[in-house]
Amino acid sequence: MTAQDQDRDPWDEFDRLKPAAPDRVAGYPGGEPQGFGFRTGVRSARVAAGFAVYALVLGTVLVLTGAVVFAAEGQWLMLGFLAVVESVFILAFMWLLAQARNRRTPR
């Protein structure tokens, strides 16, 4: 690397580029994403529901693994804590499904 390359701002080339297309929504390059609450760009209710199911299954598997370990060791307080964690997973699942059903329509 030469001294000239080190003195150059790496964003100069990016700043010189023109937008590929005008913004559909001012301030959001490429337009405002239409997600289900997280601005993820999810367009399909099936994809959003699939993500909610995936999050629930992953969380439940982790909680069940912990529950087996804690039950085997006789740590009943931690087992109760995992029951609370699982209830949070279920509530979050219901919240994500509601957002998937009631997502905003594209403008």
Rank of each mutant, 00 (worst) to 15 (best):
L96S: 07
Q4E: 15
P10S: 09
D12V: 03
R46L: 08
R24P: 00
P10N: 03
W76N: 12
V68M: 11
V63C: 14
A3L: 15
T105W: 04
G74K: 07
F51H: 06
V53Q: 05
F14R: 07
V69S: 04
A55Y: 02
F51W: 03
Q4I: 13
L62N: 11
Q4M: 10
R46E: 15
V84N: 01
T105R: 15
R39A: 14
V88M: 12
M1R: 10
A49N: 04
D15E: 13
V47I: 12
M1S: 14
A98F: 13
G31F: 06
W76R: 10
G35Y: 01
A21V: 11
R103D: 01
R8C: 02
D12C: 00
I90E: 04
A48N: 03
F89P: 00
P106S: 04
D7T: 11
D9E: 07
A49T: 01
R46I: 05
R16E: 15
W95P: 00
G66L: 10
V85M: 12
A52V: 02
G30W: 14
F70K: 05
G37L: 06
L91E: 02
S87V: 10
F36A: 15
A98C: 02
Q4N: 09
Y28A: 14
W11R: 13
V25P: 01
A3G: 08
R104Q: 12
Q34D: 05
G80Q: 03
Q34Y: 07
F36S: 12
F51R: 06
G27D: 10
E32V: 06
P19C: 06
P19L: 05
L91M: 12
A83K: 01
R39P: 00
V53D: 12
L82F: 09
V63D: 13
